[in-house]
Amino acid sequence: MMKRLTALVLLTAVVVLTVPGVEAARKLRVVTTIPDLKALTEAVGGDLLEADSLSRGSINAHEIEIRPSMMLKLRRADIVVENGLELDRWIDVAVQGSNNENIVRGGAGVIDVSRGIPVLEVPTVRVDRSMGDVHPLGNPHYSLDPGLAPIITQNILEGLSRAAPEHRATFERNRQAFLAQLESRMAEWTKLMEPVKGSKVVVYHPQWIYFLTRFGLIESGWVEERPGIPPSPGHLVRLVRTMKDEKIKVLIYAPWNDQKLAEKIAEEAGAKPVLLAQMVGGVKGADSYIGAIEYNIKTLSQALRQ
């Protein structure tokens, strides 16, 4: 009796381990560097994957503290989705600590979604750190420009299809459905921003250029005199004067910027400080990709109309 039972258990185990469907049913495990990419990956992958982001929308994506808990997520990942353009180069340290051979730089499990992006603010002169934290490959904050979502999701689609070619058609269907949804919203957003097109704004950190350009707004100044370097008092005086002279109504800042400073400058210049979602989850109500853009559009258009 005991022998039969043992044989039965062994047989069951062998069947379970060898049936291809068991392994195939496992979802793809995807880790993204920023929450925008998590949202877009989920839009393409749907139920076929589990996505997780290494950073949250409220923090500065340039300076992430590398925690070993990130390495654990990466250890289990089939795919890593990164922003590229040196925004998230910090992931190299986490990947190295994860001991996961699939996701090392140059590996098949790495998706760099910046490929094919028409990059703005690419330096045309020699850059060094006297200019602050300048990105030598261009401005990397493109992910919340809804007009670039087709390119980003195309990159994600290609990467996911490399890992799971049998699901390419599903990924493509999911992507098309998402883009169609985005397209319909895009018409509303464009209409909403139409009356304020051409308005000048001041930003805290130069991370809004893609979004502003998309909707025809003009970036007229920065709180940070040089990216990543706290501003000098002289620069702030000049900035306030410029805002007054040019009648700039809005100062845009992100959750990780110095809120008090942004409010003080806006107050002195007679402008309104506007907190926008720099990424998905950056502020309350910006919990999805479309939700984050919608929040930004509504908040900004309302502030510019006042």
Partner: peptide, 8 residues
């Protein structure tokens, strides 16, 4: 509405 695949 698929854009062309970006260079890879």
């Amino acid at each position: 509405a698929t854009p062309p695949a970006p260079p890879s």
